[in-house]
């Protein structure tokens, strides 16, 4: 700690008191919803700036802000696939609303203490599809691939498709095999499930 500073330095600090106070202010979750937050959102134009904006917002609302990697990946997915999309929560301020944007809601309500990123990917997909059972995205017998959105016959992809694939590719990469969750298919188990479902329908 220093006690002695040059008068010039002190004068410079004195002059920039307001700027320093603003720069050192820690923005809470509500700030992002305010006019200043909206202004910051609009000023973020490049992919990096958008990702950084969502990353800082998620850090502000998360109880496990230390898990920067996971928060950054979610921020990337939001900036890449959700922001500007035609999804109901694709624009400001709904994109930041935990009750509307399921990815933001996930960060607000879940502890991010696990080390396995695949688990985050599957629970995020479950949240995105409004389901509670993340297991259904991992176990072959539930035919998890059938829950995903696929591109249309003319090759067009929906916004939900972009979000799903961004989540899968960002999080579900820990598997060494050729297939990664939720692309899991076991020929006998899956076929048995088909039969069970068929008999139920019948």
């Amino acid at each position: 700690m220093g006690f002695f500073y040059s008068p010039m330095k002190l004068v410079a600090l004195l002059k920039s008191s307001s700027a320093i106070a603003n720069a050192t202010k820690i923005n809470g979750a509500t700030w992002y919803m305010s006019a200043a937050g909206k202004d910051a959102y609009q000023k973020a134009t490049t992919p990096a700036q958008k990702t950084m904006f969502f990353f800082e917002y998620l850090t502000a609302i998360s109880s496990d802000a230390k898990n920067r990697e996971v928060l950054h990946k979610i921020a990337y997915v939001i900036a890449y696939a959700v922001e500007g999309s035609s999804l109901a929560y694709g624009s400001f301020p709904d994109i930041l609303d935990p009750d509307k944007n399921p990815l933001v809601g996930y960060v607000k309500t879940h502890k991010l203490t696990a080390t396995d990123h695949t688990a985050y990917g599957l629970t995020l997909l479950a949240a995105l599809h409004g389901e509670k059972e993340a297991n259904r995205y991992l176990k072959e017998e539930y035919k998890p691939y059938a829950r995903l959105t696929y591109c249309e016959a003319d090759g067009k992809v929906s916004d939900l498709y972009r979000v799903e694939r961004a989540i899968i590719s960002a999080f579900c990469t820990g598997f060494k095999g050729q297939y990664m969750p939720p692309y899991m298919y076991e020929i006998v188990e899956s076929a048995n499930t088909e039969n069970e479902e068929g008999s139920k329908n019948a």
Binding site: M52, H72, K73, Y76, R165, I168, S169, A170, T173, M180
Partner: peptide, 12 residues
């Protein structure tokens, strides 16, 4: 396997 460019997944 589809992959996202590595710099995009590197935390700031």
């Amino acid at each position: 396997k589809p992959s996202i460019a590595a710099p995009c997944l590197a935390a700031p």
